[in-house]
Amino acid sequence: MTAVEDVGPLLQVRDLRRYYPIRKGVIARTVGQVRAVDGVSFDVYPGETVGIVGESGCGKSTTGRAVVRLEAPTAGSVLFDGTDIATLSPARMRRLRTELQMVFQDPYSSLNPQIRIGDLLAEPLIAHKRLDRAGARAKAAEMLATVGLPKLSLDRYPHELSGGMRQRVGIARALMLEPRLIVCDEPVSALDVSIQAQVLNLLKDLQGEFGLTYVFISHGLGAIKYISDRIVVMYLGKVMETATTAEIFARPRHPYTEILLDAYPEPDPRLRDRERIIVEGDVPSPANPPPGCVFHTRCPYAQDICRAEAPPLNAAGGARHQVACHFPLAQEAS
């Protein structure tokens, strides 16, 4: 773990909410709201990787996009180094943009197909750092080497590269402005199995080299475990549990975390008949979340209070372990 306890967090997300209106009819009257993110709080310390894990519709991507202000939050604050970027003016946000970058899932749809890789990488330097074209291209060439791409790629178009190479370009582009925080949104999910480890290792190496801080969003528990120092588990727009990676995997306190771990198909056939809980039912719609604890409809331990009252995110013993559950699981190893 790279984070130092007595240094303040680089990023503080507090009670973040992002609601989308549901509109109907010819005048597009608002008839309801999808609560994609519904009161999310977490901290990210300098130099660490915080993984956000959850299934589709849990709000992990919306949270990530709000952190870099690709989405304006409905409510709540996103403090980056003490500045609330949720309410920042566009001009000041533009200046801060260099510090906050994003790597997307599909490097193909996030790279302009008509622009050569060299220009793609040089462009932010020209726009933000006022470098001339030659200077920016030289930096681009350096960065390609850093992410393990041949210099020849400078004059290639995105479609000429394989998926893994394109994701290296996506990472290189995020690095060009020397950001402090990078939000990686499912950066390996679209890649072939044999390529995922290449990209995960590259992200780890770059973190060491440049002292980067990551928010790593994924539905893949394997990748999340491999890269994260701490983990935020989300379900239906809310944080269920947050703790160090070791704690989450060894001693999950939230029933949803336990169920998520149990559901993971571990590549070991001797574990196929292990004792585990497989929950029935589907994730409820975020347009109509259940009352009380949002997980109660699928929770094997739900009681009356779970159906009535949403549990707050409370301290659950050591190492900044927090859990949002009326009846957290016992602390012994499960």
Binding site: S194, Q196, G222, K225, T245, F249, L261, E266, P267, D268
Partner: peptide, 12 residues
């Protein structure tokens, strides 16, 4: 291939 995939039941 087997060496390139992460496991979750073994310690980091």
């Amino acid at each position: 291939l087997l060496k390139s995939i992460p496991h979750i039941t073994t310690p980091a």
